[in-house]
Design a binder for these strands. Structure first.
Lengths: 164, 164
DNA sequence: AAAAATACCATGTTATCCCATAAATACCCA
DNA sequence: TGGGTATTTATGGGATAACATGGTATTTTT
């Protein structure tokens, strides 16, 4: 189960960190940052699992562990609830497994591009067990907001976090 | 008891102490001071974990113990809340694990350099379980301020702490 | 046949490895 | 203790490998 009691962040597991800006070429191809790629490849798959982010104008993405986590999350919901139907549609209905080509690139679908309002450049942002793909300007706006939130919660954080 | 006074410091752990000034070469490489390096290498990793300092125009850096603390902090949040997305963005998205090369050097990312306003020289400042990387002039200004603040609070403190 | 997807190749840039050197530090032994 | 030698360290440079990115050719789909 995905909860506080069973942290899914094994200390050994590799996390998506940092951010990288890459270009989209005329054919719609984008290089996945090599740091992220090597994590995706870890379980042998040549796929990138992704779907439109629920709360942001961005694409959520990750590897097998992400899709498995989401599947597990669904599994825990009441099979006949509206909540489950809604989430299944929102996540699985709109999610895709993009093939990673021999040069480490993917082609984002029109639906994903439209959701994230992407033009010809994207930022890959590591979020730990997943990452997001943003249109650069939208991301910098969002980042400002996020940093503001972090500062607001600062005291709370510093008490728990041993000096960070 | 030790753990009461220093709740987050394992008495065995090696501390980052003292400060060292090093140069950045044309390729952007900086040597990590060997004293710091040997602490970073302790757990076998060849990485330096770092992120823009929340309160200063400096880079916060450390080894596995620092990154684990932050991962643990994130792990306590509800995985699919937007609170978590905000924090992940600001913490994971801006953090980096810089690879330490065979000569003990790292290449600081543009984002970090810009945050700390670094040109071609840096000061590594030990802060115990982590250290900071500063542009030298900024650091000496900061240090002066800090010392001034300490002097101002000295009387107040000494009444409570008998001897500091 | 046209369009899209895929494989393959080329290039400039950047990171990484390896070696050289000078200075500082640690070490050793008379 | 002193004085000389070895080792470590910071730093520079050349060679090599990796990466992002653009392009062309080949295959697959429809």
């Amino acid at each position: 189960m995905l909860s506080h009691k069973y942290p899914f962040m094994d200390y050994k597991m590799q996390l998506f960190l940092s951010k990288f800006k890459n270009k989209i070429d005329q054919k719609g191809r984008v290089s996945i940052p090599s740091q992220f790629r090597s994590i995706l490849f870890q379980d042998g798959s040549q796929k990138m699992f992704c779907y439109p982010s629920l709360d942001a104008e961005a694409i959520d993405a990750g590897g097998d562990s992400l899709s498995r986590d989401i599947y597990a999350l669904m599994d825990n919901l009441d099979p006949y609830s509206d909540e489950k139907d809604f989430l299944s549609t929102a996540l699985f209905g709109l999610s895709e497994e993009l093939r990673i080509d021999s040069d480490g690139r993917v082609i984002l679908s029109d639906a994903l591009i439209q959701h994230a309002q992407i033009i010809d450049e994207v930022i890959f942002v590591g979020l730990g067990q997943k990452f997001q793909i943003w249109e650069p300007n939208r991301f910098s706006n969002y980042l400002q907001e996020a940093q503001k939130k972090v500062r607001e919660q600062r005291l709370l954080l510093s008490k728990k976090s041993k000096g960070f």
